[in-house]
Design a binder for these strands. Structure first.
Lengths: 190, 190, 190, 190
DNA sequence: AATGAATGAGGATTCATTCAT
DNA sequence: CATGAATGAATCCTCATTCAT
């Protein structure tokens, strides 16, 4: 019943990796820097992850999955508009609670080191988004057309908004409301 | 009637740099790969650009400026909606004509190697976008609220759309019309 | 009872550096040559010294300090002439025991890579020499005049002598006695 | 009967080479820097000297020969002491008139790029010095012993003095007289 | 499990030299 | 004769990975 030390080390490495990758880019982050940030020796990292690439993928998946859970976890309650609000504010909450993680996910989106499983995680989220759009189209609340395009537009808009925020422009309540309204108008029928 | 050699070499290097940076990331691109792609020796690159960083900035600026010219060059003719259409299709034309360049600009947006002048070029384009939004707000055609937020949403949406396209999903006429209509609905008043 | 490894590696690198710097000049010595001479990989050198410059300074200081200890370590016993003999033969012993080190010190005397601390080490030795001269001037055994000039003449003469030796001319007992006598006559009053 | 342009270019290159070699070291001096200092193109240097090494040797010989002429040119007039004075002040005049050249000669003394002819020039000067010493020994004015050793001591002392001067300590009339007297006492019999 | 010294391939950059103009 | 763009081998340094302790 001892504290699971190895698990704790693994967590420490993942946390340090997120911070260092976000700060220096995956390619620009040295394992030694990462190790000292995690408070372990370089060799120790290799006990938990077979390579830098594997570590990068582990970080990516860990957070991409969490982002997905933030968006589509609970049952659909109420109207499509209400559901959109929940999704949108879920993204907002995630980006606010884990700005490093969100920035990392965007920056590494096209990281050449991402493996099939990581890509799959990404695809699942996009599909969940598309499923929501299709549902809305069936009720007539969301405009017709390729759901993938609409998902791309909405997610892109959100990323643009988050980038603005990261760049220093504070996002107050008014701006957040403006954004949500505008994006919903992009999505909704009519 | 020969082409001025040094200038031609410089162009070849800039072209190769765009291709290789887009393919491998700025950080992941080796100067030697870049050189052989350009058909010159490594040393030759350094006769034209003092460092990899300078080369990266030159590529960034060259295309960011061109993107800007695609968007806001000609006089504003007609309604705000028409102007929006021109800007949107300008982005579309640019992304279609120079997909590498567009991808590079997005990926390197936050490249830590970008210098003050490169950042300034970016800022100027964003300001031109904001100016357009303000004009539309004054005529009542564009919804009220912080222009920077609206610009971020629109540009983000476009980037998302372009990423989808790059990922393999073809963008036919219908999808393009859908995107333009949806984004305009995000922007317009009411 | 094993020898502490890292320390041993450090020593091996310092020794190899002295040999290679002396043979090829600081500027002309490639780190790769130095590494193989030390029997380690290039990267290993950089675990012990942050840069070639730092290594050069470490070698310089290591030996300059030793030279200083050879000259001025023990208490002054007997006359000024006896003390001069001790200093002179101290230099001789040092140059004979560590010909590489002595040659290196001379050649790199004005190395532009020497940092403040290295220059300080040099200055301390010159000051010890000047202090000896002043003492001799106070007892009337050494000629009057700027001690710095006299130190420069004596040390210069010694360097010239050592260079002759290195050039191949053997220095037998007779020649050494001649040199010591001559240099003392340069120094002494009257 | 035109002005011999090529000769003038050659001179300009030799002058620039002296300056740049002294400032940056033979090894540290780039041909391109040298070229722009001389006001010619890099390629032009190679019309006059087959390689950097040849240029280095040309500079070395040009000045070493001049130094020799400063020392031993005119007929021996008067006593050995007077002749010593002439030689010593000849060195002084040379070092004062061409400090760059003197520094260069010392620094490059052991330059591995010096070829046989350059070494021969050096040897001739040392021999002239030895011949003077022998003459003095025959008249009983200079102490007995290996002339090479005495020449090394005297020349070494002079180099030490010049180094002191270059290091910033001004050499006024008093100091110069002190040095000459002291060095003569090193040389003279008794 | 953890450590951290050692490795060496690989990267950015320099520079003597060549040669077409 | 002069030019200077081009070359590519060589340099310093970094960093993912291994392995003896």
């Amino acid at each position: 019943m001892t504290i699971s030390e190895p698990q704790a080390t693994r967590e420490a490495v993942l946390d340090a990796a997120l911070a260092v990758f976000t700060e220096h880019t995956y390619g620009g982050a040295a394992m030694s820097v990462l190790a000292s940030r995690a408070g372990v020796a370089v060799g120790t990292i290799y006990r938990h992850f077979p390579s830098k690439e594997a570590l990068g993928n582990a970080v990516y998946r860990r957070w991409k999955v969490q982002l997905g859970e933030h968006l589509f976890d609970d049952a659909d309650a109420g109207s499509i508009r209400a559901e959109f609000g929940r999704i949108w504010r879920g993204m907002l909450r995630f980006a606010a609670a884990h700005p490093d993680a969100f920035a990392f996910l965007e920056l590494q989106q096209h990281g050449s080191y991402l493996d099939a499983e990581s890509v799959e995680v990404t695809r699942r989220i996009e599909q969940a988004g598309a499923a929501f759009v299709v549902r809305g189209q069936q009720t007539g609340e969301i405009r017709d057309g390729d759901p993938a395009v609409l998902v791309a537009l909405v997610y892109g808009a959100f990323v643009g908004l988050a980038a603005t925020d990261r760049a220093g422009a504070g996002l107050d309540e008014g701006r957040l409301q403006l954004a949500e309204d505008a994006v919903w108008d992009m999505l909704r029928a009519r």
